[in-house]
Design a protein around this nucleic acid. Structure first.
Lengths: 335, 335
DNA sequence: TTGTAAGCGTTATCAA
DNA sequence: TTGATAACGCTTACAA
């Protein structure tokens, strides 16, 4: 029922090979033959069967993107850019949600649909160091976000220590001296959380300012509700604080809501900073100061790096993606 | 290099067909043979080549999801649920972004990668009625969101007229009498916008309350910035209003920000309502009253409907997906 | 420049 | 219950 290469060849009065040549832009085809074939393709509305093609070539033109969840805005924004960049290179993107679980991340790495995917872009959360070394051999992989540095796998990320230190300095420069930390556990092997905490500590050390263990407010996850819960616990615990450093924007936005409920003014009483610069930061009350990674560059470079690998390029990319700290109302004014 | 069916057969000392039978759960296989084959599969870590399989069967287990953009939160939330539901049925989801453009929506319908996708779930914005009739023949399609009702294509949506009327009634019941409308153009053939406007008008008619042309504030698109811009224009035009009915939550959140800039209090001076119930509505200042469609049901039913079609079921689903109006602070208190 | 024919890894037909 | 063998639609040596 579907039109096949053979049908086109029959109509054009040439062999399948010739049709194939025309379709694949093989240069040594006479103009007249080409015209005949193209007419036949047009007339029959022929579309190559990609299954057959990739069975033959071993390439599919499909890449997988693995993120924790798409409804965490940051990942949706990154995914949007990845899909767009892939599209420009003629690649199609298959999206997998891992929930940040190690097992599911491993599945993405080893290819949910083996052979269906030429390569993988993964934003890992639960993966262990040894996992990465072991699995990433089969299909080319580009990791997004933080990562053990001695690995040979391509990865892209902002310098989290530096970014966290920069954000912390912003708070310290405004006279804040008791900066609470709302973040996810820092024990994981592959962990932006750990590095953000390190940056927080480094900034304090650089100015010789002490930080306080009791201002660590762990969050179970990276969502608004977790940020709000962390603040509630902190307020109830009674330790005073004049700023909150959050490991991402959703936590920070949840923190803003919780602080408001407790009658705490932001930024007058407490300043708040986050990470990711999701769209909402410019519209929250107050607007949110945050570390803004260049998401477009992150996505575009990830796709291009993968594409290069697929084309046999052996060169590893510079992992650094630029960022800036965008200062908004949540950190305005000195203490 | 890759392990093939043949290799397994060789090791197990049986034919390829037998291995294939075991893998596909064909019942008439002796226990001993099955065991032998399974051992060989295990030993070689055999994974079927899906390219070859789908070349043979004509099915890929991949479905496409077409949405305007993933960084519009509502679509990211729906996509998250679609991917999850598909996953449970063993389907993988390929995400396409259309930007709401007719041409790109057509491409999704006709299959970006023909043959790679068994079916399509599409949330159309720019599509015309005739497009739908013509293109949806090739691969099974489920449409998400509003849609011409006389079409034969499966579709799922909330009753937009009813939902809009319900939201408008909420505003009218609170004593609001000059309700501005922030929305996208209503001329499109496939248009939730038109129906939402119709619901707005119907609610007024039901109570014999007039509405005012000058309170129509068109937005170019469905984003925060568009909602803010619409409010700015409205305020500058000088026509008084005591409520804003927005075609989606992002517009409403943008409106909240703009109203705040103009020193207008919400809900005391102006009440605000939206559509979609994205996560942020529960955290904005004030929290946002909105039409909350059952997104999980929408996604799950879309996937199941498509799955049924792929299995040859001819039955069309009930297009209605339930919704509720969630009343929050942005409409609290009487005028 | 074009054609012939083999083969990618799987499933399906049929016979044993 | 199992096994040869022929497709599925395409690309690619190699030959013409």
């Amino acid at each position: 029922m579907a039109v096949r290469l053979k049908d086109v060849a029959l109509l054009a009065g040439v062999s399948v090979k010739t049709v194939s040549n025309v379709i694949n832009g093989y240069p040594h085809v006479s103009a007249t033959t080409r015209a005949k074939v193209e007419a036949a393709v047009e007339q029959l509305d022929y579309r190559p069967n990609l299954q057959a093609r990739s069975l033959r070539t071993g390439r599919t033109g499909v890449i997988a993107l693995g993120v924790p969840r798409l409804d965490e805005v940051y990942f949706a924004e990154v995914a949007a850019h990845v899909i767009e960049a892939a599209d420009r290179l003629g690649l199609t993107v298959l999206v997998e949600q891992t929930d940040g679980e190690r097992q599911r991340e491993l599945e993405v790495l080893s290819g949910i649909r083996p052979g269906l995917v030429d390569g993988v872009i993964l934003s890992p959360l639960g993966l262990l160091r040894e996992d990465i070394e072991q699995t990433a051999r089969r299909t080319p992989v580009v990791m997004l976000g933080e990562h053990v540095t001695d690995s040979t796998v391509d990865h892209l990320r902002i310098d989290n220590v530096k970014a966290a230190a920069r954000l912390t300095h912003t708070l310290l420069a405004a006279g804040r001296r008791r900066i609470a930390v709302v973040g996810t556990p820092t024990e994981r092997h592959v962990s932006a959380a750990r590095l953000r905490l390190a940056g927080y500590e480094r900034a304090h050390e650089e100015l010789g300012i002490p930080w306080h263990e009791e201002l660590w407010a762990p969050a179970a996850n990276y969502r608004r509700a977790d940020g709000a819960a962390a603040i509630h616990r902190l307020v109830e615990a009674g330790a005073p604080f004049d700023a909150v450093f959050c490991f991402n924007d959703l936590l920070a936005l949840g923190a803003l809501a919780a602080l408001r409920q407790h009658g705490v003014r932001v930024p007058e009483d407490v300043a708040v900073g986050g990470f990711d610069d999701i769209d909402e930061c410019a519209y929250s009350v107050p607007t949110l100061t945050t570390v803004s990674p260049d998401k477009v560059q992150l996505a575009v470079r990830a796709v291009h790096t993968l594409h290069a690998r697929l084309s046999g390029v052996e060169e590893s990319p510079d992992p650094d993606v630029p960022f800036v700290v965008v200062e908004r109302d949540s950190t305005a004014g000195d203490r």
